[in-house]
């Protein structure tokens, strides 16, 4: 099918950097899927179907990784030999952790008082901080400061988890 050893960026013909031309990624993804998706090979021989399946799954995986900024940053770090996803690595800035702790407490209070607007405010706050970290990430990662990038990636993961939890709380309020 195609060269499975190419990295995600090469697969889509994009430069290996954090700043991304989202429209170009989208376009390359669709074009590749049009050609490798199993639907193209619905009536094909078994070995071709298998190739199409693997190729299409590979394209999906690459797209999923590059589309999500945090996953993209992790992947870039991984390409340069840094594992930002190791669970044993729990180092984080103290002021960052303090802020999240306060948000958790605020969310618990909001939930106890069924205060939907307070929940929404905390979520907006989390999204704001994530946006700031992402902007930072672009300068440190494309500027080759990998240690600073690793730290921000970890913090972004942390915020993403907190954001998910907040959204679950919002959903629970919806169902109430």
């Amino acid at each position: 099918m195609f060269d499975f050893t190419r990295n995600h960026f090469e697969l889509f013909g994009l430069p290996a950097r954090f700043r991304l031309d989202a429209a170009a990624l989208e376009r390359a993804y669709r074009e590749l899927q049009r050609d490798v998706h199993p639907d193209r090979y619905a009536g094909a021989a078994d070995h071709e179907k298998r190739l199409a399946l693997q190729g299409s799954a590979r394209v999906n995986e690459a797209y999923r990784t590059l589309k999500d900024p945090v996953a993209r940053a992790e992947y870039l770090l991984q390409l340069s030999g840094i594992d930002a996803t190791a669970e044993t690595d729990t180092r984080m800035r103290a002021d960052f952790l303090m802020r999240q702790l306060e948000r958790r407490e605020g969310a618990d209070d909001a939930r106890a008082g069924h205060d939907e607007s307070a929940l929404a405010a905390i979520l907006a706050d989390v999204q704001r901080e994530s946006g700031q970290l992402l902007a930072d990430l672009e300068s440190v990662l494309d500027g080759d400061d990998r240690e600073a990038a690793r730290m921000r990636v970890r913090e972004l993961r942390f915020l993403a988890k907190l954001g998910d939890d907040l959204r679950d709380m919002q959903l629970a309020e919806l169902d109430r």
């Binding site: 099918m1 195609f2 376009r27 390359a28 074009e31 049009r34 021989a45 070995h47 071709e48 190739l51």
Partner: peptide, 24 residues
């Protein structure tokens, strides 16, 4: 079988070179 793989490669190469974008 080998022919099919080569055709697929060619097709992917066309996509990457952007030749088919307009046609599609």
């Amino acid at each position: 079988a080998g022919f099919a793989a080569r055709r697929m490669n060619r097709s992917v190469a066309r996509v990457l070179s952007g030749r088919r974008v307009d046609a599609l």
